[in-house]
Design a protein around this nucleic acid. Structure first.
Lengths: 364, 364
DNA sequence: ATGAAAGCGCTAACAT
DNA sequence: ATGTTAGCGCTTTCAT
């Protein structure tokens, strides 16, 4: 900057003013400084600026479990978009579900004076965040409530969604419904099970506790749970799945057994339109979830005194999946003519499969 | 820091030394400083540090088209992992395929003195990057070559993969193969088509140019292309799809027409194990692609003098998809007993469907 | 309207 | 081994 000042024959203050488009600088000087800047290839150094200006690094941090999870990458995308309109860059970091790493990341980002933090909490206690919040780093928690800290929070309506999804199964005549449920210690799963129970209670059906299975993490685990329930006496006639991986595993086991039971599952399943039969899904707008969180964060950036907010994002129940099976494979050149298929189903499936959900899967 | 020094009754240098775990400080002083630090809740400010230390913000930037695309979110994840082992955070930004935004992002990140940049280029000319590179900001380009700049580059073996995939179709007896191809101006697509042509030439088959269709961006577009080719005289007996969205659209149109043609497609299709018939896919290790890029970047961080590298990541041809159709939906409670199905196919499908590809789709 | 000088929080010579 | 001091690049009083 001194170099530019010397080159332009002015003081550094004037250079600074030009760089920041200050109102009152002689047009002639502006010109001279501009030339010097481009001649020397000068760019205002953000670090020096940040240091001098105190808080305001024009950066926010996002801590998720695993950025590869489409749920979180969509969140990251949306947060970055909102950030863009505030001239703010986004640091993304995956905690890998490791509370220690999560804590280190939060500390590291606070140390770097980020303007704010959006956190999908993994740790069970976040009291260590309180001093940072008090020191003025806004934090918004997403999807799961933190423990031991007073901060903004944006959640999905897990219980409401599960309630509505279970109602669908009940309307179809089911009253013995299996629940396959991932890790019951996870907040979202607890809420979803709560919603399931509410629907059953509402219908006046007892919940057979033997039909609830937890602890399955992978689709393969879920398949095994389904197998166990079906092989026991008085098997369920439908399944409620607590998340999309579970849904996948459940559908797979049913396919293997050629069983045509009804299934409802929380979360969208990306390829649901390719599923060989209809499935009830409890879906929601992840973008909205992320946007609410980011907006809350930036609002707090401006006004630190507002009370901690708690926002709930609604869910929706939909049905997806093919209505009809697909023919077997044939030899090359063996053209099978368009059959007199179910044209109504064709119409239903006319829109490009998974068009909505693959809209982000742009090629590269 | 001065406060800490005063509190501990030492000089600021000593505090700095303690904070940085310098070897030679009296244990007693270390203790005193530590106490003062925790009493005052002091955290070393990274901005001041960065400013003093000159280049080295312990941050790298990643610019992609769209972070929602699983391809890019996987890249981001891997880059962050490598960064972690270098104590470096990651700023992710989506260019949204807008060259102007891409340019702004690159400038902004350079201005912030990032230690390096990994870029999936969207713009057609990157000459504007050269000054920054010369000023010492390492850049690695990913997946597509930049124009007008000498920099490190990591690419997929697009042509080789397309060659191998097309060979599979040829081995199955096809010689009239339709090519559905996205935007032909995109580098990767050109390479893939080049591979396709190489395979045809190798087999001594002519390429009927009427069977090549470009310009389709969505699955729905691809479906329309397939329809047009099939409705024309001398339709193709198989399809080569230039990317996964195209593959989805092609399969969908074939399903609609009950046509059992062979299909080969570039890129993995996440839900391929649920596809109702086998499909040939040209797949690759995105993680490897990202890791090579990140490693190259950090290597250059250390030694700026090495020549620009060009790395090619290999592809693999696989077959995925169900071997058998799924039964129709039934009424609730209407339990269909396990039929005498194709047990061999069952075995093939025994592993949880899409287990490999959904491994990142962890619930939340 | 412009420039000189102070100082943001930190580290690194240098002196002790 | 420890403290004093200068200065990283910038913005901002405060004179002029």
């Amino acid at each position: 900057m001194r170099d530019v000042a010397r080159e332009a024959g002015v003081g550094v203050t004037t250079v600074s003013r030009v760089v920041n488009n200050a109102p009152s600088v002689q047009p002639e000087y502006v010109e001279r400084v501009r030339t010097a800047i481009s001649k020397l290839g000068f760019r205002r150094n953000t670090i020096g600026r940040d240091l001098r200006m105190g808080r305001r690094t024009a950066t926010i941090g996002l801590i998720v479990e695993d950025l590869r999870n489409p749920f979180y990458s969509l969140v990251a995308y949306e947060v970055e978009q909102i950030g863009r309109s505030h001239d703010t860059l986004l640091v993304t970091a995956s905690s890998d579900e490791d509370p220690i790493r999560e804590r280190e990341l939060i500390k590291e980002l606070c140390q770097r004076d980020v303007d704010g933090l959006i956190i999908v909490p993994t740790a069970t206690n976040h009291a260590f965040c309180q001093p940072e919040i008090d020191k003025g780093v806004p934090m918004v928690f997403l999807d799961r409530p933190p423990d031991g800290v007073e901060a903004d929070l944006v959640l999905l309506d897990n219980a409401g969604g599960a309630l509505a999804g279970t109602r669908r199964l009940i309307e179809k005549g089911h009253r013995r419904i299996g629940v396959i449920g991932y890790e019951i210690s996870v907040f979202t799963i607890q809420e979803r099970v709560r919603g399931f129970r509410a629907a059953m209670a509402e219908a006046g059906f007892p919940v057979d506790e033997r039909l609830l299975r937890f602890g399955s993490l992978t689709p393969a685990d879920a398949s095994a749970d389904v197998a166990a329930l079906l092989d026991a006496p008085q098997p369920p006639t439908a399944f409620f799945c607590c998340n999309n991986r579970i849904t996948v595993g459940v559908l797979d086991e049913l396919w293997r057994r050629r069983l045509q039971l009804d299934v409802a599952g929380f979360d969208d399943v990306e390829f649901a339109d390719f599923l060989p039969r209809p499935v009830t899904l409890i879906v929601y707008d992840i973008g909205q979830l992320a946007r609410r969180a980011a907006e809350l964060l930036f609002r707090r950036t401006r006004d630190r005194e507002i009370n901690a907010q708690r926002i709930m994002v609604p869910t929706r129940v939909i049905t997806r999946g093919r209505a009809e099976p697909y023919p077997m494979r044939a030899q090359p050149g063996n053209l099978v003519p368009a059959s007199a298929g179910n044209h109504e189903a064709d119409q239903l499936n006319r829109r490009a499969p998974a068009d909505q959900d693959l809209r982000h899967v742009k090629p590269h």
